[in-house]
Nucleic acid binder design. Sequence first.
DNA 1: GACGATACGGAACGCACGCCCCGGTTGGCA
DNA 2: TGCCAACCGGGGCGTGCGTTCCGTATCGTC
Lengths: 171, 171
Amino acid sequence: MRADAARNREKVLEAARELFAEHGYEVPLDEIATRAGVGPGTVYRHFPTKQALFQAVTETRVAAMIASAAEPAEDPEQALFAFLRRMADEAAVKRDLSDAITISPDLRKGLHAALGGLLQRAQEAGAVRTDVTATDLVVLMKGMLQSMHEGANPAVLLEIVLSGLQSSRKP
Amino acid sequence: MRADAARNREKVLEAARELFAEHGYEVPLDEIATRAGVGPGTVYRHFPTKQALFQAVTETRVAAMIASAAEPAEDPEQALFAFLRRMADEAAVKRDLSDAITISPDLRKGLHAALGGLLQRAQEAGAVRTDVTATDLVVLMKGMLQSMHEGANPAVLLEIVLSGLQSSRKP
DNA sequence: GACGATACGGAACGCACGCCCCGGTTGGCA
DNA sequence: TGCCAACCGGGGCGTGCGTTCCGTATCGTC
């Protein structure tokens, strides 16, 4: 690969990282190209499609976060809650997390499996209500992550979900 | 107004009610026209814009729901929770509820005020955690309403939020 | 039954966006 | 330094959608 090509590829990746994090997947590709100081054609020389660029930016990062859920833990409740908190912290800063889950089937499946494992152990330990499924949790989190940029207090939203997971409702 | 015009206007409204409820605001206007057995131009003879048609379909219905929150109640906790449940029930059947809140500033303000009142009384009664603001609740509900059509169990999602509102998290 | 106003349908426009193509340029090897 | 292959920029195409325009059909009155 020629030197200028490698340089441009890196500039595109960096611009994409910034803009996807700020605006999510819906940012126009031309804006990424402009920010990178490059024409749209150049972006397509390095990435066959907008989705491919998005996945190049998000996939490894999010996959690593998901993989961190597989580490063995002592307290099943803390393990689940710490993971959910990590997701929320990430989403509070980077808008592309929830889009990544939506767009990449692999990430979605991985997250479903990871949350399923954490959830089951927490439920077996009696720390989390048993009527919640992994699918429920994935959907709930995705909704919350998306809501996180609309003026509410992210920490409060997370606390509501966490304590809601712990207990059934008082009569 | 001519008789056929009135008839067409009604056909458009009915098609819009069905399709907005099923797909939300993002349904193409041409589809509404087709379902109504009418050309797109005819839709625009009766409603100046797609938004106007959407508001004609949703505004009074949602405003009535919001107004029902103003009825005086004995138990502040039950009043708040019953209202949230009503929103969830409506959203489970009609996808346009959350879009209506997003699109119409009046509805958003109205909902904010209504929820603010219910929330404050429930908090004063000690039934709901005090770190939640009306904005938090609006955002949280909007996120949950949107999540409601993605494969999770709507009842479970609602229960998590309700019990999460009740209590702080156990240590 | 004829005529004018009203309404209709659908083709067409403007815009935004993902994606492709081509004339010109630049990098690196001989 | 010269040459060719690789690469670049940006104009352009196709598509989907909201919106508008206009020739035609229909309604309701005289």
